[in-house]
Design a protein around this nucleic acid. Sequence first.
DNA 1: CTGAAAGCGCTAACAT
DNA 2: ATGTTAGCGCTTTCAG
Lengths: 390, 390
Amino acid sequence: MKQDRPGKQDRPGKAKGPAEAASKRQSFSKKTAVGIREVAAAAGVSPATVSQVFNHKGEASAATRERVLSVGDRLGYRPNPVGQALRSGRSRVIGVVVSYRESAVWQQTYMPYYQSIIAGAAIEAVDHGYSISAAPSTEDGEIETRLPLDGVIVVDPIPNDPVVEQCMARGLAVVIDGGYSPATDGARMVSVRADVAQGIPTVLDHLWDQHVARAHGNAGNKQGESGGEASDQSGENRPFRPALFTGPRLDSYTTDTTNAYQSWCEMRGLEPIVATLGHDQPPLDAARALLARGPRELNAVHCLNETYCSAATAAAAELGLAIPTDLQISVAGSAYSVGSEERAAYLNLDPVASGALCARSLIELLEGRPVEDHLEPMVLVPARRVDFGA
Amino acid sequence: MKQDRPGKQDRPGKAKGPAEAASKRQSFSKKTAVGIREVAAAAGVSPATVSQVFNHKGEASAATRERVLSVGDRLGYRPNPVGQALRSGRSRVIGVVVSYRESAVWQQTYMPYYQSIIAGAAIEAVDHGYSISAAPSTEDGEIETRLPLDGVIVVDPIPNDPVVEQCMARGLAVVIDGGYSPATDGARMVSVRADVAQGIPTVLDHLWDQHVARAHGNAGNKQGESGGEASDQSGENRPFRPALFTGPRLDSYTTDTTNAYQSWCEMRGLEPIVATLGHDQPPLDAARALLARGPRELNAVHCLNETYCSAATAAAAELGLAIPTDLQISVAGSAYSVGSEERAAYLNLDPVASGALCARSLIELLEGRPVEDHLEPMVLVPARRVDFGA
DNA sequence: CTGAAAGCGCTAACAT
DNA sequence: ATGTTAGCGCTTTCAG
């Protein structure tokens, strides 16, 4: 059917003979990976058909499909993603925006979380033919990457975060991990967050239960009484005095946590004690200051994240406070990771799973399927160990 | 054959006037982001000139350069990286290969390190106009990504790692974090590693010094005596008995550590005690088994990484061993991160810095500049705290 | 159901 | 010094 070689080699236009062109092709194929045209030629079809087959895009006879596929496989054909991207306008790359350049404390606190998000997103993305790129952002919200991103995952943005605003302005699909305000309509945006409003009351009630149980002499490995009822017995020996150890960032996670804590205190008739880390203050300093109040004034503390929890346990050790006898600790974080603090009660968070969920949501969005916001329940994991040597 | 088909060869060049081309261009600009041709038209030059100016590639009069730049800026022109990649054959994307799918224990142990590598590499890469993509790999060494990678960073490969082999077979530039064997010549490969052979003796000598100093009654906050000289005083009260707590992976870091430990023991005339974690054994179990020997048989332990260190401290707590009185602990890891164990001596490792270094090395390699292997010295950070409540 | 044609945005090699 | 030309590898109308 095609008397001489199909494809580009007779493109040269001007004056080239076919033989000449063919040899040029040869010399390419040594260096270049096998392209769609090689496959097409070998299978006796046109490049268009090959493309069509490889993209599952519909109409080809079973025989042709089979042949193309097997030839492609034999030749080791891998569609060049750059060509695809150029032609289709979609790169199948998802950026995870990371704001590494903030303060040292911020880095120490949030970077581990970020990194797990990236890990989870990377795995999930690859399962759908997407890739993850870690994209730092500048202070003014510009995403620094040369990659053409189809969509973006932004972790814990602050209200009116410049990164988010820029993405929306550019029409990029965005998944927010942690929630975002102000809500913008018409934007391709989904949010994935932990249900702090449910988790915080749960853990605080749990701590209270434990406190009361211990006051009654049982060492406190029973749990499960309904939390709300414990309140009337609290005054017995020492009143329950739970604090919140939180941070200076105004992202949704932090503000939601603080609000949930405040309203729980109000509901239970307790006075809130909130320690907010200063902007460049070492967590350990803040923890020392907080716990210096002593076990009479403060006998439980919920920590915003694991960094603060580490600081709290370290400060407790310095001050000779036994956990949980003198001080109960709870924290939102990964209960089952190796470095977890087994004396603390956890509101379990799985950042790797969150990353995967973010990626999945974003991909759904990109492929035009309807996506809902996600609100992940936070599961309570009671403390699994008590202080030794106490 | 080409004359009968007026097909593609009358494409742009031959017969079209510039005006015609320009008007066609216009219709594009409505939908697409501003392209090189818009800028060219607006600045009254050719696309080639614009490209040339934006790529700092040499020859353009100052006036033209100025004009092109300002027009480009005004129009918000951003060169499309896909076009650049397609044309140049280089994507400016670096993959960090991650093998997430291994065992749970492995994940817990190595993932944090991986993630820091990604973070450091991402920052560094962006400063050089590159991007980082997290690329999972399958068991047989296939890198799962749709992105065309210019080069790859592989973290802690095992000997003959299929990922590394495949990359070399494909002619990809590779940076090995942690070292690789067998060495392959002719491959574009660089390795970046910590100088374990220097670090291990340093920390072991340090532990010994501390041991001796404590035996002599000084609580041991002095350090700096030459390590080698301490040996002759060791038999006094209790002999110094340092163990190595290591893992089942056969990467260079692990084998180098084990070798350094063994030869140090030999040199100092001590009997080596090596605990190697089983393939799917929880670190805490292994730590319990090791420390169960009691303080007479074993009074110091060097841990391969921070996961093992956590396990060792937890096991020590369970067994009522005071740190460092009954058991000294040392570990290779990030001494200054928030979660660090202050009772342990650290051989300091900064994985974020390593990631940056890997990226920088790879970029040098990609840009054809000569690159040397890096051997990072490991700095000793003595324990900063002793057990409270002991 | 298949193929030919027309580029996506950019740049290297040649013209001018 | 600047412009022209010819594609990089692929997909996507549009004809057959």
